[in-house]
Simulated scan of single mutants.
Amino acid sequence: MAANLRRLRAEKGLAQDDLAYEAEVSRSYLSQLEKGAFYASLKILEKLARALGVAPYELIMPPKKRR
């Protein structure tokens, strides 16, 4: 999830502070999620997906393999 969260946030051009505010989580918690230090609950996953404008599964699907 960490890589997808970082990638989606960057694609949307959002700073961690901005995404944290929109998802109603602390910036430090978001940072830990992006580092893979914490796991998100389903409730947090939904908040993050809504703030990013994506479906929740996009945060947890395996990253695509590069060729």
Results as ranks from 00 to 15, higher is better:
V25H: 03
L33C: 10
L5E: 09
K64V: 12
K43M: 13
Y57K: 03
A49I: 07
L14G: 04
D17E: 05
R6K: 14
M61G: 00
A3F: 10
R66K: 08
L59I: 04
A49G: 07
G36P: 10
R27Y: 02
Y57E: 10
A23R: 00
Y29N: 01
K12W: 02
Q16M: 09
L8V: 04
L52T: 00
S31M: 03
D18L: 03
P62S: 06
A51S: 14
A37N: 13
L33K: 07
A3W: 08
R7H: 13
P63H: 09
Q16F: 02
K43F: 15
P62M: 04
R27I: 02
L33A: 14
V54P: 02
G53V: 12
S31T: 09
K43R: 15
A37Q: 14
P62N: 06
A49E: 01
P56E: 12
E24V: 08
R9L: 05
L52M: 11
V54W: 06
R6G: 01
M61V: 13
R67P: 13
L14Y: 15
L42S: 11
I60W: 05
K43A: 15
Q32A: 09
K35P: 00
L52F: 10
R7C: 08
K65N: 03
G13T: 02
S31I: 03
E46M: 09
I44C: 08
